[in-house]
Simulated scan of single mutants.
Amino acid sequence: MSFTTNMADTVDKILGFSGAVSSLLAYTFYRLYKSRTETASRVRNIKIWQADLDLFDHLSAVDEHCLAYAAVEGTVKEMGRTLHSLHGQEEGVMMKSQLIEHRSKKVNGFWSDTKKELRDTTQFVPFSLVKPQGGDPAFRLEVVEPGRASHLETELDITYDRFEPHKSTLIQAGLDRLLGEVTKGIQETEKMLLSGTTLLGVGRIFLERGEMKLGPPDDSSQTFILTKMRLSELVRSYESQSWTFKVMAVVSALCGGSVLAYLIWRHLRLWLERRRRRREFEEIRRTVRRDNSAEGRREGGSGVHDEDTCVVCLTNPREVILLNCGHIALCADCAEALPFPKKCPVCRSAVERFMPVFHP
């Protein structure tokens, strides 16, 4: 009885947890879908400015000397110090250096590749966007907090990428394979945002102490963007991401809804079955009471032979026929108390229905 009940509880918990996870994923994917859709909508028809006198005059004329969400296109120009590549002649304003150890690990009899990050550093120096093709440096647009911008880190130029295989003796290699963990080697990469790169910046453009600046929007729902893509490419990228997240949200919602519907159906079926059984046993008890009223067969079990007592409680007389097996082994109380799905305690076959025993 307890095993069956525990199994049912375990199934309910697993289904409930699965439904909760699916619902959480659906909500997360929906938020991502909504965010990408809104960003694509905002950016699609946005005006692209240049870092020049026209932008400066416009900022000087508008309220608060600020454009809450606007786009500007320009060429990367350092403001003072420049970052130099550690492995070449390249110069830039942002450098990302990584050192990664590649390993192969045996898990459950299968080998899988893993990575361990030994170093991951990112450096910035102040930089600005200037008008391409010889724009006036006096009207440069300083980029504020570039580390918060999306797209930028994924679009850096690779200035160095080298994989150094791990060298080990034959004995050491055999021992590593026996232990289930092999070091393949170390990969060192360097990526930079090079001076002279053309960028599209989308964010808050404002005047501060007579200097133009680009930074994250005040509205957290708006995305701060620095990218090499053109505006049309950027819109297509967000629309593609939006469609992907929409499909994932719908699939997750369907999975969560299906699990919830199954749980409701499962518990409703159990409730209806218990209700039917309860009515069935009420009728059986009324019949048994009528049959035994003259004999007093359940007065403490008096007058009941051992072979006629219930095999579970060993007190009350056997009052119920179990169908389809036909065994007469239980009293009405113990028959009703059998866990669902009900099985005969004698032959363990499924019980489809019960009938009262009529004593001549």
Rank of each mutant, 00 (worst) to 15 (best):
S2E: 14
A26S: 12
K34Y: 12
E38G: 01
T39S: 13
I46G: 05
D52N: 09
H58L: 14
S60E: 05
E64V: 13
L67Q: 06
A68T: 10
Y69V: 02
A70I: 08
V76I: 03
G80I: 00
L86I: 07
G92S: 02
G92E: 01
K96T: 08
E101V: 06
K106A: 00
N108P: 00
N108Q: 01
D113N: 09
D113W: 06
Q133M: 02
P137I: 10
P137W: 07
P137S: 08
L141A: 10
R148T: 10
E153I: 07
E155H: 00
I158E: 13
T159P: 01
T169I: 04
E181D: 13
K184H: 15
G185M: 01
K191N: 05
L193H: 04
L193G: 07
L194M: 14
T198V: 11
V202K: 03
G203K: 04
I205G: 10
G215P: 07
D218Q: 12
I225T: 02
S232T: 14
R236S: 13
S237F: 08
Y238F: 14
Y262M: 12
R266Q: 10
L268R: 09
W271G: 06
L272W: 07
R276H: 06
R285Q: 06
E295Y: 10
E295K: 09
R298K: 06
G300F: 07
V304Q: 01
P317H: 01
R318E: 04
C325M: 08
C325E: 10
E336H: 04
F354T: 00
